[in-house]
Nucleic acid binder design. Sequence first.
DNA 1: AAAAAATTAGTACATTTGTTCTAAAATAAT
DNA 2: ATTATTTTAGAACAAATGTACTAATTTTTT
Lengths: 203, 203
Amino acid sequence: MDTKGRILEAALELYNMQGIRTITTRHIAAHLNMSPGNLHYHFKHTDDIIRALYERLAVAFDLELVQLQQSVTVDMDAILDLSARSFQLVYQYRFIFLHFVEIVWRIPGIGKDYQALTKRRTREFTRIFERLIENGTFRTDLPPSIWPALVKQLFIVADFWLSNNELTGRLHEKKARAAYQKTFYMMFLPFLAAPEKISRAAV
Amino acid sequence: MDTKGRILEAALELYNMQGIRTITTRHIAAHLNMSPGNLHYHFKHTDDIIRALYERLAVAFDLELVQLQQSVTVDMDAILDLSARSFQLVYQYRFIFLHFVEIVWRIPGIGKDYQALTKRRTREFTRIFERLIENGTFRTDLPPSIWPALVKQLFIVADFWLSNNELTGRLHEKKARAAYQKTFYMMFLPFLAAPEKISRAAV
DNA sequence: AAAAAATTAGTACATTTGTTCTAAAATAAT
DNA sequence: ATTATTTTAGAACAAATGTACTAATTTTTT
């Protein structure tokens, strides 16, 4: 019924499969047995479709962030949970992450939005790390500048893990999720005050 | 004189500035005051240009790898040096890294090559880590599976740091290099057996 | 039921792009 | 010097693409 929604769903599916370069509005319309004219009645410009999809991702991300703020306990299990949910989002909207630079160059507004989102995410992670230090979960013998650096590392890996997978492994959903999670697990290990306590569980 | 070389240089410059999506063979030809026909006499297909540029990058990377194999001492200074040279390469051919997935999807041969290169790089880094462990530079209390994980992290950050910078900071060459190097420095810190000895120097 | 508004299909157009073709000009070989 | 080869310019073509236009059809409102 909701034609706009159906267009977005079809676009997401096709973009995820083939990328934004090969998929045109004609392809999306054909996939829905819809005329190109009709599609462009709902989305005047192709970029409007990409923009709308990005906004859906941003909303989902923010929801995740709010949930995180409300969580009471923060330990390594919570972090692993978080990385699983992060994968879910990144995978669902993978065309964005696989073509992020191109998309941002093409639609600068998305870049602005992403920067704002990154700032919010950074604040949240900084808070989490503070708690993990107070907690005794994290080491205290490293210089404090290590924490913003870790945040940056985490973001780069989170945003581009899938791209790397596309270049090397090409693991599919299930295996990819496990590998993604393991990567994050391993990123936190060296920061734990007592790594040997946990290391057996998930390695 | 070497027309092929001039085409590649112009293509590299334009691709780096505007990406492979907006730059066409016509743009490259115009930039050289050359007819499109002439350009296509030297490179029958557009993809041949991208392919040739990738090959230049791959050769440079391999050279770096050979140099690394021959280096006698391996310490943190050597690692920092390496990251500086890595930045040099990544920055010089940045259009490849900024559009890596698209390029690999478009020209599958590049994907195969990159995978082979990654294997060689992995072997080399594994060896370096072994030496750093024997050395006493690296910690020994972490599970051994941490080292391949670290290699993967390093590769993701190396390959996509620039993409992340494009999405967030947009630092230019000089500042970008410093930030890139700092990122890698910070990635190694938590693995050092005695981080406090070095931490003052470069933080 | 009639009128108004919305959605849809299908066509058309201008632009762009990769590539080919032809012929001219420059260069090298004999 | 003449012939052969390589290089170049410029035009031309076909396919693709984003999007606008028009008319028909469906849906909603009154």
